[in-house]
Design a protein around this nucleic acid. Structure first.
Length: 817
RNA sequence: GCCCGGGUGGCGAAACUGGUAGACGCGCCAGACUCAAAAUCUGGUUCAGGAAACUGAGUGUCGGUUCGACUCCGACCCCGGGCACCA
């Protein structure tokens, strides 16, 4: 046994031992309850950054802890391999995306192995492999056949110079990032998945996801955005057409003084034909960005169309405006405007001198001054004819009924959630398995012709997808009529791949069909770990996909992820790591210098998992020092010779105290690992235990048995976090076998019992002293001990004791006046 | 703009159910060892006053509830994440 600690030697040896024992290869027949532990797979961007290190260390800690607790654990790893950065690399350096991606995967896999993550590499796959996306295409066609897929026009960012669609990220200050040309809105036919059909279930089941953080459920609830309202039809004056708007505030209907439509709305187009002013405004709106945040912060502008609609109850003519804040994609592309009771409408009305009418009076004493702001809370109706005096709630029903009676409105449940547009006009993605035939229309690729393989021998000329000009790809015969047809050249949104990979890990080689029985054994994922940036989109799409797969009989649970750990960001210079470029945050240098255990421990110790923090290398050296101290402590202890069997009755006071600390550490770490998921406090607890050992005087033989126990517990408790050095020391301490196959010990509760407790004594809520009392002291004894304290007497003397509050085992507060 | 988080020493943080604010670590200071340095070990380290005992202040700001508030309530300020084509 080498006396000095060399993390590189230790880590290589321990990793070799794991490999020969194949201890992370999971099977369906393993003993113990199954536990599927999954950390979000990475995009292979080049090298790991510290955000990855955090995520996968956390996942691995959970994996290893559950092994110690006797579960049959599966922790797979793979690659979310399609995406924009590979294309950018191709455009910039001429490296084909497939090559770039494969190189990155190989490098990053090596880094993960160096970090000692207990992944089951036999299940590895990358989503860019045809064996994977084959089944995505197959399932998409099944969904198409079921009517869950449809095609409609949707707006994209269009770069008129590069003649290509841009991602929101590629639009910088309203211009294309490469061409610098002002970006335009352009409508294109695109494929959509009907996620809105599942809106109600996606919302309702959040209430049953007890293992999810409340904040994530809240974000998803708000995103789905269920509301109760009324669809109201405004007849277009002098025509038999109707303009439909949705409102959650039908009680304010009598205060509507105009309606506003989107620039792409048919009424706006019609007005633009007659009015150059409207046409100019509509044209200006073509440069609006597509991101909601941009629209929401936009200066609100509009022009009157000259058209009017008839108020559905009074027949009053209301002007129709085109406004830049109304978007065709949301609802019906038109809104009714009630400036008296909606702040945005109020600001618009003030700007363009449109009438502001009060129809709701405050029910209580809320301030209401329509010269200052809209009154947006519920109240009682006024200036509303027959509805005057009703509360907002009563008026909701009465006005909805009145509209229904006239055939001009009906109650409606509305969701903010929109259908999922899955088409991307890009190369490096899964080909959408559809064919466009001039005579048959849209024809899905027949099952026997799947997968539609993405050609990888491509050259980028400019920034457009090479598929659009690759005749060998797009020219096909129509499967129906045999005539000349054109293959779809759009690819899927990469969220498609990440929406079902967790299920594929259960059976990565299944080929008939996309999943097999093994998916039922392993899913749902028991613990899913990933960044908070995925709290809405990825998790919502994956939940949706799980329900789609359930309804196709592929899985038999309702939700994919039972427990969810949402990690905070790892920041570097105030920016999130995954957005950083280059070597910023690459852990390689740290691994080379300090080893994996130090890096892992420092990362776990830095902050609790759900908290964002700024990464600093300062902590790594400290944890490397700790690993070394632990090593030295163990070897110093071993040098003192054999220890007798532990005999609790033979211990000195210090020995008993150390045993209590050991057992407390076991108890506390179990709770931190299993329930609280605060691994930073596990590291602290182990530090404290090791500090306690180093403070132990080299006592009698019986005490040395307590030291042996303390060190063994420290090594076991720390092992999920620093698995290599702990495995090595576990063996050195005379324990048999691999630590990953050991069991978490039972706590010896007898060792936790204390004879005396320290009480805090407060006077008027301020700490004035501490006293020691027997553990079973009653209130009277606590009070007596407290009042006997010299410093306490100084503050109580000469005053009347009005009240004494005693919290057994904690404190006594003496209230004097 | 909307939704969701967060704000505690020089720094990362701890305080879990309203009960000792600053555990544990980094950094720094002092000491031991050393010809010296590194490494290691020991002690100190919220701020102000004090030799010390101890006292006062203190958890983004302002106000409230309570015997007692980092923790609960109200208002506000600042920072981060998401906003549907970054992943």
């Amino acid at each position: 046994m080498s006396a000095t600690y060399d993390p590189h030697v230790v880590e290589r040896a321990v990793q070799n031992a794991w490999d020969s024992a194949r201890c992370f290869e999971a099977g369906e027949s393993g003993t113990g309850e199954k536990y599927y532990c999954l950390a979000m797979f990475p995009y292979p961007s080049g090298q790991l950054h510290m955000g990855h290190v955090r995520c996968y260390t956390l996942g691995d800690v959970i994996n290893r802890y559950h092994r110690l607790k006797g579960y049959n654990v599966m922790q797979p790893m793979g690659w979310d391999a399609f995406g924009l950065p590979a294309e950018n690399a191709a455009i910039r350096n001429g490296i084909p995306p497939a090559v770039w991606t494969r190189d990155n995967i190989n490098y990053m896999r090596g880094q993960m192995q160096r970090l000692g993550f207990g992944f089951d590499w036999s299940r590895e796959f990358a989503t860019c492999e045809p064996e994977y996306y084959h089944w995505e295409q197959w399932f998409f066609i099944k969904l198409y056949e079921k009517g869950m897929v449809y095609r409609k026009s949707s707006v994209v960012n269009w770069d008129p110079v590069d003649q290509t669609v841009l991602a929101n990220e590629q639009v910088v200050d309203g211009r294309g990032w490469r061409s610098g040309a002002p970006v335009e809105r352009r409508e294109m036919p695109q494929w959509f998945l009907k996620i809105t059909d599942y809106a109600e279930e996606l919302l309702a089941e959040l209430d049953r996801l007890d293992g999810w953080p409340e904040s994530v459920k809240s974000m998803q609830r708000n995103w789905i955005g269920r509301s109760e309202g009324v669809n109201i039809d405004f007849p277009v004056s002098g025509t038999d057409q109707r303009l439909t708007v949705y409102t959650t505030r039908p009680d304010t209907l009598m205060g509507a003084t105009y309606v506003a439509v989107a620039a792409e709305h048919p009424l706006a187009r019609r007005a633009a034909e007659r009015s150059p002013e409207v046409a100019a405004f509509v044209e200006k709106c073509r440069n609006l960005k597509t991101a909601e945040a941009d629209v929401a912060t936009l200066e609100k502008q509009g022009v009157p169309t000259g058209l009017t609609v008839d108020h559905p109850l009074t027949g009053e003519r209301l002007p129709v405006w085109v406004a830049n804040f109304v978007l065709m994609e949301y609802g019906s592309g038109a809104v009714m405007s009630v400036p008296g009771h909606d702040q945005r409408d109020w600001e618009f009305a003030r700007k363009y001198r449109i009438a502001i009418r009060q129809v709701i009076a405050p029910a209580g004493d809320e301030p209401c001054d329509l010269d200052q702001a809209a009154f947006t809370t519920y109240g009682r109706l006024m200036n509303s004819g027959a509805f005057d005096g009703l509360t907002s709630a009563e008026a909701f029903a009465a006005i909805a009924d009145a509209l229904a009676a006239k055939g001009l409105g009906e109650r409606a449940t509305h969701y903010r959630l929109r259908d999922w547009g899955v088409s991307r006009q890009r190369y490096w993605g899964c080909p959408i398995p559809m064919i466009h035939c001039p005579s048959c229309g849209v024809v899905p690729v027949p099952e026997r012709d799947l997968p539609v393989v993405l050609p990888t021998d491509v050259k980028f000329e400019g920034v457009r997808s090479p598929l659009t000009t690759m005749e060998s790809f797009y020219r096909v015969d129509c499967p129906k009529c045999g005539g000349e047809a054109r293959r779809e050249t759009d690819t899927f949104d990469t969220f498609m791949e990440s929406s079902w990979y967790y299920a594929r890990f259960a059976c990565p080689d299944a080929n008939t069909p996309m999943l097999d029985d093994r998916a039922d054994y392993w899913t749902p994922v028991d613990h899913y770990v990933g960044g908070i940036e995925h709290a809405i989109l990825h998790l919502l799409y994956a939940r949706f996909f799980h329900k789609l797969m359930r309804d196709h009989g592929l899985v038999h649970s309702d939700e994919p992820f039972t427990r969810l750990l949402m990690l905070g960001m790892v920041l570097k210079d105030g920016r999130k790591m995954s957005k950083s470029s280059g070597d910023a945050g690459n852990p390689q240098a740290l691994l080379d210098k300090y080893g994996a255990d130090a890096v892992r421990t420092a990362m776990m110790f830095a902050a609790p998992p759900d908290q964002s923090f700024e990464w600093s290398e300062a902590g790594v050296e400290g944890q490397a020092r700790f690993c070394k101290r632990l090593w030295n402590q163990v070897h110093e202890h071993l040098a003192q010779g054999d220890v007798p069997a532990l005999d609790p009755t033979a211990l000195s006071d210090a020995g008993r105290e150390l045993r209590r600390k050991s057992q407390e550490t076991l108890l506390r770490a179990d709770d931190d690992y299993g329930r609280r998921l605060t691994f930073n406090t596990v590291v602290s607890a182990v530090h404290e235990l090791v500090n306690a050992v180093s403070r132990m005087e080299p006592g009698n033989d019986a005490d040395r048995a307590a030291v042996r126990e303390a060190l063994t517990i420290a090594v076991l408790v720390l092992s999920p976090i620093a698995p290599h050095v702990c495995q090595n020391l576990w063996h050195a301490l005379g324990q048999e076998g691999l630590l990953v196959q050991a069991r978490w010990p039972e706590v010896d509760h007898a060792a936790l019992v204390q004879e005396a407790l320290e009480l805090v004594v407060q006077v008027n809520g301020k700490v004035r002293g501490k006293v020691s009392v027997p553990a079973d002291a009653d209130e009277a004894a606590m009070r007596e001990a407290a009042l006997a304290n010299e410093n306490v007497v100084r503050f109580v003397d000469g005053k009347t004791v009005r009240k004494v509050i005693s919290v057994p085992g904690k404190l006594v507060n003496i209230v004097v006046g």
